[in-house]
Design a protein around this nucleic acid. Structure first.
Length: 527
RNA sequence: GCCCCCAUCGUCUAGCGGCCUAGGACACCACCCUUUCAAGGUGGCAGCACGGGUUCGAAUCCCGUUGGGGGUGCCA
């Protein structure tokens, strides 16, 4: 043959993670939940084959929320099979467009999501196998050299003709040179049915599939080939990816079969599942350029990973019953590719945010306070939103105090990044909202009067506690014919700088008598 | 142009021939609760794209129309 020995399953030999992992290996797995629903089992040579799926992102930009959903669905599938394997393979062919920082971003995103995997592997590591596959196919007569430029191909294309390449060089018998690329000879007639678990079978007329390029002039294998070789080497059983890849499926099947024949290694073809696209309000595919698609962005804004995962699962799929907030174990138990919707889904940040608020409220007070640390603790934290630092320093920050305040804000935020603005007055002098200050203190004659009455009343309080503060404020308001709603406004503004915030009397009690009185006096002075 | 996919409230979806007077969630509106803002509670608004079939019966099956989208790279 051609001296080419395809590797077996990716495993011990080559398959060592290419980099030391800095983040702790996320997630725990193994135990598949009881009562799970299985993927239709795949058999090969009479044996049931464990599910092997993969995520194959290219490092050409931020980690996309759509990629996150694809990752999640693949991960779920692997989890449903006690022997299932989920591989992360970074498709880093095309040196022109890849950047190392983006591959790091892929690892970071996966770590945050907590989706554990086998790998990570890099497509570039498998370049020798790609070259060997190219040689095997060429020797078998499946490939031919072509020196047409894109412009020439374009110029020859007639009106209404089959798109793509016209087969001009098919029988020219060109040799390898610096100006020849390698094309795959595709059949001209017949139909190819792509088995797709979400859509059923999709039929393609072979006449509509052109002789596509599998290797550049430089000789390097292109995605079209590398992807198939890697999936074969990895013994992938289910190719689960976005719908934008649907048109690639028949080409990949053709290549896969040709590789089986050319190498004499019969690897069963995978079955496909093309997930509906995630779209923006204009119903266009989410784009890295116009839409907020970077997963990192959501983490920075204080979305909880559990909420993000839950929301992603709801895009194109839904749990049984009326409850949408579902634990991951339950999602794994219920998920079936066959139930995935066929139509594109709008990525609705408002719904994500609402779901996130729900998740925040379900946190224990301790867990909530801990989750807030990157936003409130000026000390050392494991992670910080990009470009953010609390507005207060260590000397003013009090962890115990924040723990007492946290429950007050927990039910008031839908994102963690809203927390600092809600608690800042505990750690810094009030940053006055001047419009608010004018409204309820400077330009309202009752304002200063309420303030000085509060100074007197609060100073004489036996216990500086919420109930007493409430009663005192109610009383001083009534003395002026003011509702509690009206009476609390100037006090809140004087002490917190704003008109909205956590419950006032609890806040004052936590702040303490001395500080409260001082702020009341300060506000009176600047009125 | 050509190939392919898709079509239930504004949005995400349930529905897989009779349980549908079409269910839930987000958003929106009203009311209640209330020291602000939220949260919470109650109620409301709102949908089967259109036209033909098939059937005793269609949101559900078939065909067509229209409308959206994806692909059409020596990108992935």
């Amino acid at each position: 043959m051609h001296g080419h020995r395809p590797r077996g399953l990716r495993g011990a030999r080559r398959r060592l993670p290419v980099r030391p992992r800095r983040e702790p290996r996320p997630g725990v797995r193994r135990a598949a939940p009881p009562g799970r629903r299985q993927l239709p089992q795949r058999r090969h040579l009479g044996r049931v084959v464990p599910v092997r799926v993969r995520l194959a992102p290219s490092p050409t930009g931020y980690f996309h929320v759509g990629t996150a959903r694809t990752a999640l669905f693949n991960w779920i599938l692997a989890r449903q099979d006690p022997e299932g394997v989920f591989i992360l393979r970074v498709e880093d062919t095309d040196p022109e467009r890849n950047r190392e920082e983006w591959v790091q971003a892929i690892y970071a995103a996966m770590a945050w999501l907590g989706l554990d995997y086998t790998g990570p592997f890099r497509q570039s590591e498998n370049a020798p196998a790609h070259a060997a596959a190219l040689e095997a196919l060429r020797a078998a007569g499946d490939l031919y050299y072509c020196d047409c430029t894109p412009a020439e191909v374009e110029a020859r294309r007639g009106e209404g003709a089959t798109p793509g390449y016209d087969g001009f060089c098919r029988d020219r018998g060109l040799e390898r040179s610096a100006t020849t690329a390698l094309r795959f000879r595709t059949p001209d007639e017949g139909t190819l049915n792509v088995p797709d678990l979400v859509r059923g079978e999709v039929a393609f007329a072979l006449s509509s599939i052109d002789d596509f390029v599998v290797a550049r002039r430089s000789g390097e294998a292109l995605y079209a080939l590398a992807n198939v070789v890697d999936d074969r080497d990895d013994r992938i059983t289910h190719v689960v990816r976005g719908e934008e890849h649907l048109a690639n499926a028949p080409k990949q099947m053709l290549l896969w079969s040709a590789l089986n024949a050319a190498t004499g290694i019969e690897v069963p073809l995978p079955v496909f599942a093309h997930l509906p696209l995630l779209v923006n309000e204009q119903r266009k595919k989410l784009s890295k350029r116009r839409d907020p698609v970077a997963l990192e962005l959501y983490r920075d804004q204080g979305y909880l990973v559990a909420a993000v995962l839950n929301y992603l699962a709801l895009l194109g799929w839904s749990p049984r019953g009326d409850e949408e907030i579902v634990a991951m174990d339950e999602i794994v138990r219920q998920f079936r590719l066959e139930d995935v919707a066929h139509s594109p889904a709008f990525f609705d940040v408002r719904k994500l945010t609402a779901l996130n608020g729900d998740y925040i409220r379900r946190l224990s007070p301790e867990a909530f306070a801990e989750a807030c640390r990157p936003w409130v603790d000026p000390g050392d934290v494991a992670w910080r939103p990009t470009g953010y630092r609390p507005a207060w320093g260590l000397e003013r920050y009090d962890e115990g105090l924040f723990a007492r305040v946290a429950p007050l804000v927990q039910e008031r935020v839908a994102r963690l990044d809203e927390v600092p603005a809600m608690v800042d007055f505990f750690f810094i002098d009030p940053a006055y909202d001047e419009a608010a200050f004018d409204k309820v203190i400077r330009h309202d004659p009752e304002g200063p009067a309420v303030l000085s009455a509060a100074v007197d009343a609060y100073a004489g309080l036996e216990a500086f506690a919420p109930a007493a503060l409430h009663a005192a404020t109610l009383a001083l308001g009534e003395a002026r014919g003011l509702s509690l709603r009206k009476a609390q406004a100037p006090i809140r503004c004087a002490v917190t700088g704003r008109l909205v915030g956590p419950p006032l009397f609890e806040s004052l009690a936590i702040l303490g008598r001395a500080e409260t009185l001082a702020r009341l006096a300060a506000a009176l002075a600047r009125a």
